[in-house]
Amino acid sequence: MRRNETRGRLGRFDLINPVLDKEIKLRMRSPRTMWTLFFYLLAIGFLAFVAIYLTQELSGRNGAAFNPEQSKMLFYFLTMAQLGLVAFMAPGLTAGVISGEREKQTLNLLLTTQQSSATIIISKLLSSLSFMVLIVLSTIPIYSMVFLYGGISPKQLVLVFLFYLFIMLTLGSIGIFFSTLLKRTMLSVISTYGVTLFIFAGTAMLYFVMLSITTNYYYSQPAGSGSTYNWVGHIIAMNPVAALMSILEPSLSDQVFMVHRNAGPVRGEAPMPLWLEFMLAYTIISAIALWIAVRKLRPVSRRRR
């Protein structure tokens, strides 16, 4: 029986790619998956209830009256808390996907199959992404509590969830990049968390330092001279918290590019919304990270002679 003729029809008769199928199957069979979901919901639920309790207590209204501002604050709080949890979860879920296979000594077997490097990398990313999406979607009932109080539009909610998807994709790509390049999962996890920390905290700190330096510079200039555009806004555009806030509060984009002068703030004009700049920059970074991961997964082939 010759079966080689069937080669080249990869996945033609399977609904999804075999690597993705395997990843999802194995992930959903692991008890760790259930516990991850459980503790995530526990954490976000706890934060939501604490926030509701505090806002009600502090306002002294006992929740009897409609207060859109309060509801908005609650939504912002939940949104940022969830962003923090996503940032904590995404590196953990992706930084071991390739190095883990290498450590379990299953990677070589996978690499000798007909699956392309791109298929393996993308399937690994999609599998981790789908689990993260499941977790984030499972928090919707908690968000629905915010709707009880009003003040939030469904459009905002959809945008926030799309932003989560993007940040998961970005951090996931960085996780897979390190997982492919570094032999040990521990090193990969540390590196991914390091980069995540820089993206979240490092960019913000850098922004505030640069803002202080440039503000001092503008103060030293005679009034009416110099630029009215502060370039340090581009630094905070690399920060996910600021980018997400710019979706919720569009005026933020203009504010971060604003120049403070002796006579008070002057006009600030964002070249583009923060979230858009953030997405453009990180789309390029993610694409480069994935491209390198695909190239480094297998030994480099020579050109056909």
């Binding site: 029809r9 990869l10 395997k22 194995l26 692991s30």
Partner: peptide, 28 residues
Amino acid sequence: YMPDFFGVYDQFKTTEYLHFYGASYGIP
């Protein structure tokens, strides 16, 4: 190829294990 040291996906059944590799080689 069978390496000197190799791992297996423990949470697969034997038939699932072979199905996975079969699918990875494009066998319907």
